[in-house]
Design a protein around this nucleic acid. Structure first.
Lengths: 193, 193
DNA sequence: TTCATTTCTTGCCATTTGGCAAGTGCTTTT
DNA sequence: AAAAGCACTTGCCAAATGGCAAGAAATGAA
């Protein structure tokens, strides 16, 4: 069956019977997004809860001065969604863009809700995804507060090597909260060690 | 009835019939926490999902150098919980402490789950709370990245005046990601305008 | 291959924030 | 009232990061 990565992912995060899993993934549709295209554009109400089977994405928005700020990187084998817009049905201030050609399985808000109401195990999955995202953000916020740019860089390169293979320096820089100039210098310092 | 603030809060966030509301709040227990006491201590698995009816709390943890870092302030009339520890049943790295005498209504993980499974409207409530927290964190992370300390201070004082009436300077400073020395200077600059 | 465009690096200097330590003022204890 | 403790402020200087602009390197198009 084609949706095997999705099945494995759901199973891993919230065990369910084979039949239940099939009932769940049946409602996901295959989706392809080419490099530089968007899963979500600001101003829209997000209607894609996407399991990213292959590729690499990023979320970004703009600060008050109009600079692009990367808010998140999404490697493959995880779900990609903008919680606020998707779940609250509000207009998104974020963009989600493919940094490489991407393939995955997507479900709409309506269908996801239907599954949440009818499949208790899947509710656990949904909550686990939300909590996971939340925790990741918390840790990042904390790191922003009490670590130097160099330490944040070191953490990122240790935990998410693939970011450096897929994203541009300026994307990584704004994600780390520094300028690309500074990141370039930090990287230089770092390579000496 | 005693739990009226809670009833109103649930009703506002996810409308339900009077009877359903009563069924929900019945499972919450009144809880009092005195100033400087803890709702959650690091090392514990959180088992309190608290609606804070009155008082003021903060969450904090320690950075790698052992400095206290305030991660969140909780004014009254909102829910207070550590999503990671409470929902994932993992050991908390955060502390939640009362900054004033506090009163609220608390429910355990088990009972909350029971309600989530049996009351669809309440599931919506639970999700809304999680998403809300998430959004607040995202905005904060973003602000940490692309705003100066002075701007972050200005935002905080405009949006959360009560923090300044309830928390110490050093708590606010670590929340803003600066030292109390710097905050003191910023505050001085600010009062000139 | 060659040219054009984009991405990344680097030098110079400015600005922001931090570290430390002393000092002020308020509150609590005795 | 004196002493002690805590919260906050301030001066001095250091360290981290930014802004700008020029140049180098990589990438993509013709």
């Amino acid at each position: 069956m084609k949706k095997e990565p999705l099945i494995n992912f759901v199973q891993k995060n919230s065990p369910a019977s084979k039949q239940t899993l099939m009932d769940i993934v049946e409602h996901f549709e295959e989706k392809t997004i080419f490099k530089n295209d968007y899963l979500l554009k600001e101003g829209q109400i997000s209607n894609d809860y996407l399991f990213l089977a292959d590729g690499f994405m990023r979320a970004f928005t703009f600060d008050t001065e109009g600079n692009e700020v990367t808010t998140y990187f999404y490697p493959k084998n995880r779900v990609v969604f903008e919680a606020s817009s998707f779940f609250m049905r509000t207009i998104s201030t974020e963009n989600i863009q493919a940094l490489t050609d991407c393939k995955g399985y997507s479900i709409t808000f309506e269908k996801l809700n239907m599954l949440f109401h009818s499949v208790p195990e899947f509710r656990e999955f949904g909550r686990a995804m939300l909590v996971k995202e939340f925790v990741a953000f918390k840790q990042r916020t904390l790191a922003m507060i009490n670590k130097s740019a160099e330490e944040r860089y070191a953490n990122l390169i240790n935990s998410n090597k693939e970011i450096f293979q897929n994203a541009q320096l300026k994307h990584i820089a704004s994600y780390l909260g520094i300028t690309d100039t500074s990141l370039s210098r930090i990287r230089k310092e770092f390579s000496k060690k």
